[in-house]
Computed example of a mutant assay.
Amino acid sequence: MKPVSRRTLDWIYSVLLLAIVLLSWGYVIYASTVAAGRQLKKKYPDKIFGNE
């Protein structure tokens, strides 16, 4: 197996870091949307909301 260049390693690490950041932000946005939906459902039980 031939050695990998420093530039290639930097690129791979950058892509991995970007993927981790995007996944974590996606989780934060999803969780806050679910929490907001639950709070709205608790406050206005007779209304129908799109999520859940």
Score class of each variant (00 low, 15 high):
Pro3Tyr: 04
Gln39Val: 12
Asp10Ala: 12
Thr8Met: 02
Met1Trp: 10
Phe49Ser: 02
Pro3Ile: 02
Ile20Cys: 01
Arg6Tyr: 11
Glu52Arg: 13
Leu18Lys: 04
Val34Asn: 11
Leu23Asn: 13
Leu40Thr: 06
Gln39Thr: 14
Leu22Arg: 05
Ala31Glu: 10
Glu52Leu: 12
Val4Ser: 03
Ile48Ala: 09
Asp46Cys: 02
Gly50Thr: 14
Ile20Asn: 03
Ile12Thr: 14
Gly37Ser: 08
Tyr27Cys: 07
Pro45Ser: 00
Ile29Gln: 07
Ala36Gln: 13
Tyr30Pro: 00
Val21Tyr: 05
Tyr13Ala: 09
Trp11Phe: 05
Lys2His: 08
Ala36Thr: 15
Val21Ser: 00
Lys43Asp: 09
Glu52Val: 09
Thr33Ala: 11
Leu22Val: 15
Lys43Val: 02
Thr33Gln: 13
Lys41Tyr: 03
Pro3Ser: 02
Lys2Val: 06
Tyr44Arg: 01
Ala36Asp: 13
Trp25Ile: 12
Leu17Pro: 00
Ile48Gly: 02
Asp46Ile: 03
Tyr27His: 06
Gln39Asp: 12
Leu22Glu: 12
Gly50Met: 15
Leu9Lys: 11
Arg7His: 11
Ala31Pro: 03
Ser24Leu: 09
Val4Trp: 04
Ala31Asp: 14
Leu22Ser: 09
Ser24Trp: 04
Glu52Asn: 10
Val4Tyr: 04
Leu40Lys: 11
Lys43Pro: 00
Gly37Arg: 09
Leu16Phe: 05
Leu16Tyr: 01
Trp25Gln: 11
Trp11Leu: 13
Ile48Glu: 13
Gly37Glu: 06
Leu16Pro: 07
Gly50His: 15
Leu16Asn: 07
Thr33Leu: 10
Tyr44Ala: 00
Glu52Trp: 10
Trp11Gly: 02
Trp11Pro: 00
Trp25Thr: 12
Leu17Met: 07
Gly50Arg: 15
Val15Thr: 04
Lys42Glu: 14
Leu23Met: 13
Leu23Trp: 08
Ser32Gly: 02
Phe49Arg: 02
Leu40Ala: 08
Val28His: 12
Val28Cys: 06
Asp10Asn: 08
Lys47Trp: 10
Gly50Asn: 14
Thr8Gln: 09
Asp46Phe: 05
Val15Ile: 06
Arg6Asp: 11
Val15Ser: 00
Leu9Cys: 01
Leu22Lys: 04
Val15Gln: 06
Asp10Phe: 08
Ala31Asn: 12
Tyr13Phe: 08
Ala35Leu: 06
Lys43Glu: 10
Leu9Asp: 05
Ser14Ile: 00
Asp10Lys: 11
Ile12Asn: 01
Asp10Tyr: 06
Gln39Glu: 09
